[in-house]
Design a protein around this nucleic acid. Structure first.
Lengths: 228, 228
DNA sequence: CCAAGCCGTGAACCGTGGTTCACTTCTTGG
DNA sequence: CCAAGAAGTGAACCACGGTTCACGGCTTGG
């Protein structure tokens, strides 16, 4: 034997792989999946078409990874916002909670705002993540993505219920519905064919809606009648 | 001149056209857009591939029409439910409204329930209408579809506000968010890879969520602080 | 019955873009 | 410096499925 993969070559390999992913991500963020053809990705990454296939078994696999990377960034940001709200630290959160403060609502508002503002910043990418038609293989990843968002909300809602701040409800369900509501409200403004939006007004509406839908007053008789 | 299109031939033509649409619809309802290849549609309709192109300039046009037909059925049903709630007639609705009854909430609940139950009946079709990846041309139709749903809710909400039954809010916004919430809550259960769902529980949750999110209690300070 | 011409036919065509593969270039241990 | 073998190359390949088109059979007014 003669050749042996070493740390340096492996690093180079990883580097190339990342370059490909970043190139694909850039193309998607710029022009959606339409523009993310294998040849174009390769060109942008400064490699040959065939090289892409040294790193990914298929285009679907590449796009799946791209989607995962992009979406995890977004989810992390929202998670961060949901953890603290506008508090400076976990410590402060605990303090307020023990004092009977209503931090859950604050945290939900912060998460929603982060979600929306980030999406409206990188519209093209947000559209790609939320609504653009994709290969079924990638669609599966999108489901994960949305579920991840929902999980963040679900945890926060569950906290709020535990502290008595929010009324009894199925946190997973409310969270899922909330993600759908936010997504739908954003899709219009995000759509490529859309004029300027009043971002602040949109965010305000979203927060109002979100808090309203997690915090009810007494249930009306209709619910009991119909849902019995 | 010699040949002249007559009533009879035109009727035959229309009939063929409809047969094609129905075949496409059936295929979509059964296996999604994957299965709705032009050749397959033609076969199912009992015509030749080329015939499809005597009636539709392109596949996208055909699918667009199919989508429109299917979605308008759904929207009509929901509209119907939203008009009367569980009342027997418009007359009764007016009577209750004049008596200060809270019919808007009832109507919303009815619309949501209809939406959800119908979707869960024809799962495959509902999935195709709500979430399955589609050709961008058809995607535009989907946007219309969702907007149509939203309009139904928006009108009902506006009525509720006018009668003082619902709090001041942007009906269009709430309606859009609501459609998103319902859609998202349904997508999971509708997904091809999904086990049995407790339909009643789901419907109950949806109604609760919908009423909650249209009917708030006093706004918390967070809204004012953040949304200022 | 004829001319005009549309409806229907389905095999062949073709553009797109993902995938392959024979070949070159580079890296490593001996 | 050499053999072994991985990484990189990019032109050629190919599958897929939408679209076309030359032709046969009906329908219609004269």
């Amino acid at each position: 034997m003669a050749y042996r993969p070493t740390e340096r070559t492996e690093a180079r390999r990883t580097q190339t792989r990342e370059r490909i992913v970043r190139a694909a991500l850039a193309l998607v963020a710029q022009g959606g999946y339409r523009e993310a053809q294998v040849a174009a990705v390769a060109a942008r990454a400064g490699v040959a078409t065939g090289t892409v296939y040294r790193h990914f078994p298929s285009k679907a696999d590449l796009l799946t990874e791209v989607f995962r990377v992009a979406s995890s960034h977004e989810v992390e940001a929202v998670e961060q916002a949901a953890r603290f709200g506008s508090a400076a630290s976990q410590h402060e959160v605990d303090a307020v909670a023990q004092a009977g403060g209503d931090f859950a609502r604050e945290r939900i508002a912060a998460a929603v705002e982060t979600f929306a503002r980030r999406a409206l910043q990188g519209r093209r990418l947000a559209w790609a993540l939320l609504a653009e038609p994709v290969d079924p293989a990638v669609e599966a990843e999108r489901l994960q993505f949305r579920r991840a968002y929902a999980d963040v909300f679900a945890r926060t809602i569950a906290d709020g219920i535990a502290s008595g701040e929010l009324p009894e409800q199925d946190p997973a369900f409310t969270a899922t519905a909330l993600v759908g509501a936010i997504g739908e409200a954003l899709v219009g403004p995000l759509s490529p064919t859309h004029a300027g939006t009043d971002v602040d007004a949109l965010v305000r509406n979203l927060i109002i809606f979100s808090l309203r839908s997690t915090t009810d007053q007494e249930l009306s008789p209709h619910v009991h009648r119909r849902a019995a």
